[in-house]
Nucleic acid binder design. Structure first.
Lengths: 344, 344
DNA sequence: CTGAAAGCGCTAACAA
DNA sequence: TTGTTAGCGCTTTCAG
């Protein structure tokens, strides 16, 4: 099937191309009769305009892109739908674009911006150092959502939405300590990670330190470099090895809910009962956590609020030019049944 | 930042635009010296070409798109990475494009094809009746992967990869029956679904019938229309209601692993032990199923093979024109610990 | 090896 | 209300 162009439609209808363009785009300055006739032909021949030509010509679109680094991350996945709803609510077109591991986010973002004449964009996931340096140069509004940064550069100087991983790691562990636990195992991500995992680890250490509990290397498990971190396997192997090592602990902090899933399994296989023999606390509060047995006590990241607030920040930028803003959410502790108070 | 164009680069380098184009695209017919000089400027000014212009001009690209209906489906999500690897292995560029619920897949596919001059596409997920009628008209190679069809039109007359849901539903239930179970509850998706859920249901009924077990409405739970089907909530509510109804059963077939997750929870809360008091079998074999306690016995859909084979089918089409082919995979029964033989 | 020029299919002035 | 036309930024002949 030879691709129909606007010219063909114009010819068939015996009108000029601009008239067809007006009809398709619902623009004023065209009689209802002509419009109807054209649309009929468009339908009949199943004409679909070429977006490349359109984008090329248009000065600006009405599209906001959600650029995702880590499309397989379940936490991010749970936000896609929310973003779409929220963005459409504000009258924008929504475009989800996945960034591969081998690609550079900023390059991808730039390409997409030029290609689609984006009105703005939201970067979800990944890690960036001093993102503002390259991103500001693009000259379009953007917001970072849950984009990690290294511990050295605490917060980028640009719109950013997320949680304070160090603080929430601290909160999770403090909670366990307040429940009477002192021997707290940690199932972490990669050892040489310098972002999320490092910060939650820092929170773990600070909580211990503040309660006068020494940090013990043997209670901490880092995942194998070639294993996907924050995954069930990560948790299974981690808990398994901790148990096998013979070190004793009464509670366990897992850096993600998916990790707890694997950890539950390892614990179960070892005959360690949760929470009786070992309390477990997770992180993220994904849907899954509610259905684990026993129900998982976890640090809930308010994903819906985070989405809403990302969009709101972007709206402000798209409207007028406000100064850069941060929005640091608090994770909420959801108490379920995986942690119990330890009796002396 | 005013957007740099190829003209600007040409001007800066004192060359023609075509020379710049040659440099960027690694084309022959340009001296290494000129090329190097141009690339230096490109780097320095951080020039990134406009893809819309490129796509508009180019006759064909090297891109194959994965068009996904149901981006939040965990089973599909587990295939994204595989598709990318496989497609790149064959030397193609990979593009993941999500279709919203409100959009029509074929329209989206057509737009994308025109916009990106796609070499081919793989449609993942969703449901289509007689897809070949509209898709063949596009004139580019395509493969359907795990695209549902209604029971009336068993198989589209086009390249299609997936499993036979009726058969595998039958296999799952037969397995339970062979294990001595006769009172088998079913936690299904929507009642008026006429695709996946309907077919697995048909398999359930056939298995019962072949073993002379009457179909009992009270053992079957359909999800509430406004609830996400195949979800943990679907399973939790389903199992909960089945238990509350007082009907007795010794085994349960859940139409997805995610459903079993919720069902486990409901069973646990009711004090029903798996598999001692009730055996459970799932469907899909997603990673999660391995980590449930007890390990979930489930019908494993060979997702990696399905991806490979989808790509292979597409490759054949892209190369020469072969006739349409089907590839129906068998789900594999993974036996873990959620089912036991029922003693009389 | 390089540059000028002709479009790709569309939108948006500008005329009519 | 319509049609004509000039590009959007790029690739690709075709001359030089």
């Amino acid at each position: 099937m030879a691709q129909l162009t606007i010219k063909d439609i114009a010819k068939i209808c015996n009108v000029g191309v601009s008239t067809v363009s007006r009809a398709i785009n619902n623009e004023p300055g065209i009689s209802d009769k002509t419009k109807e006739r054209i649309m009929q032909v468009v339908q009949e021949f199943n004409y679909i305009p070429n977006n490349s030509a359109r984008n090329l010509k248009m000065v600006e679109s009405n599209t906001i892109a959600l650029i995702v680094t880590g499309i397989d991350n379940v936490f991010f996945q749970s936000m896609f739908g929310e973003f779409e709803v929220e963005l459409r609510k504000h009258g924008f077109d929504y475009l989800l674009h996945a960034v591969s591991w081998q690609e550079d986010v900023v390059t991808v973002a730039t390409e997409l911006m030029k290609e689609k004449r984006l009105k703005g964009m939201i970067l979800l996931g990944g890690q960036m150092e001093r993102p503002e340096e390259r991103l500001d140069a693009l000259g379009i509004p953007y917001v970072l959502c849950t984009v990690a940064h290294s511990s050295e550069h605490p917060l980028p100087n640009c719109p950013w939405v997320g949680i304070d991983d160090e603080l929430e790691g601290y909160n999770a562990v403090s909670y366990l300590i307040n429940k009477g636990h002192r021997d707290i195992a940690l199932v972490a991500g990669q050892r040489y990670d310098n972002a999320v995992s490092a910060q939650r680890l820092a929170g773990y250490r600070r909580a211990l330190a503040e309660h006068g509990i020494p940090y013990r290397e043997e209670l901490v498990h880092f995942t194998d470099p070639q294993m996907t971190d924050f995954s069930p396997e990560n948790g299974y192997v981690g808990a398994k090895e901790l148990i096998a090592s013979g070190v004793s602990f009464t509670a366990m902090f897992c850096m993600s809910d998916l990790i707890t899933l694997g950890a539950y399994k390892a614990l179960d296989e070892a005959g360690v009962r949760v929470p009786k023999d070992c309390s477990v606390i997770g992180f993220d509060g994904i849907e899954l956590s509610k259905y684990m047995c026993p129900g998982l006590t976890t640090m809930y990241q308010p994903r819906v609020d985070m989405v809403k607030s990302s969009v709101e920040l972007l709206m402000k930028e798209v409207g007028a030019d406000n100064g850069p803003v941060h929005k640091i959410y608090e994770a909420t502790l959801i108490e379920r049944d995986s942690v119990i108070t330890r009796e002396e």
